[in-house]
Structure formats: C-alpha cells, structure tokens
Simulated scan of single mutants.
Amino acid sequence: MGVVWLLIVGAAAGFLATRVMRVEAGVVQTVVLGMLGAVIGGLVLRLLIAVTGALAGLVGAVLGAMLLIWLWKTYGPR
C-alpha cells in the first residue's frame, strides 16, 4: 500500500509542480520528479519538525524555569 500511495502522491505532486514551474515533462518524468520531491520534502519537513520540537522544548524549559524563579522570589523564604 505504501508504494501505491507514493505513486499517487508523486503523480499529483509532479503534475502540480510541473504546472507551477511551467515545465513540459512526460508522464514518467513527472511521476519520478513528484516521488523524489515527496521523499526529499518529507525528510526536510521531518528535520524541521525535529529542530523546532527541540527548540520548543528549550523555550518551554526556560519559561518554566523563569516561572519557578518568580514563584521562589515571590513566595519563598525572606
């Protein structure tokens, strides 16, 4: 099922990409371009999600630490 789905998505992506870029290509070239584009795009998207996920974790950790410092300074021992 994965290969069939890759062919369908690749064909659609290749068709749309060749129309947007105004490139004349045959059916096989269009499908291959779309499949390779789907693989490369998927890898890049996963990398971006991983990086932003890690960055979001860092931002969350800093905000959490700032909240704890504020609570400690406000309600902690004097």
Rank of each mutant, 00 (worst) to 15 (best):
G57Y: 08
G60T: 09
G53T: 10
L55C: 01
L47D: 13
G42L: 07
L55E: 02
L71P: 06
A61I: 00
A11C: 09
I49D: 13
L55V: 07
A56H: 12
Q29A: 10
W5T: 14
G64M: 08
V31Q: 01
R22A: 03
W70A: 11
V31S: 00
L47S: 14
F15K: 01
M66W: 06
L67Q: 15
A12N: 07
A11F: 11
V28M: 05
F15S: 09
V51Q: 09
Y75C: 06
A65P: 03
A50I: 00
I69H: 08
V3D: 06
R46D: 03
G37F: 05
G42N: 07
G41T: 03
P77I: 04
V23K: 14
V23H: 08
L63A: 14
A12G: 06
L71K: 13
L16P: 06
A38P: 01
L7T: 12
M66I: 12
V4T: 07
L67V: 15
G53Y: 10
L6G: 06
V32N: 00
V9K: 10
G53H: 10
M66P: 01
G41Q: 00
V20W: 06
W72G: 06
L16Y: 13
L36W: 02
P77G: 02
L45R: 12
L45G: 05
G57R: 11
L7H: 05
W5N: 12
A54W: 05
A61Y: 01
G37Y: 01
G76W: 09
Q29F: 05
V32E: 00
V62K: 10
L58D: 00
Y75I: 11
T74D: 12
L33K: 03
L33F: 11
W5M: 10
I69F: 10
V27M: 14
V62S: 07
K73N: 14
L36P: 03
T52Q: 15
G37E: 06
R46K: 09
L16N: 10
T18Y: 05
M1H: 09
L36F: 08
V23Q: 12
G26I: 09
A65K: 09
K73P: 05
R46A: 05
L7E: 06
I49S: 07
R46P: 04
V62G: 03
G53C: 10
G42C: 07
G41I: 03
V3S: 04
V39Y: 11
G37P: 07
R22M: 00
L16K: 09
L43H: 09
A61N: 04
G34H: 00
A25G: 02
L48H: 08
R46H: 03
G53R: 13
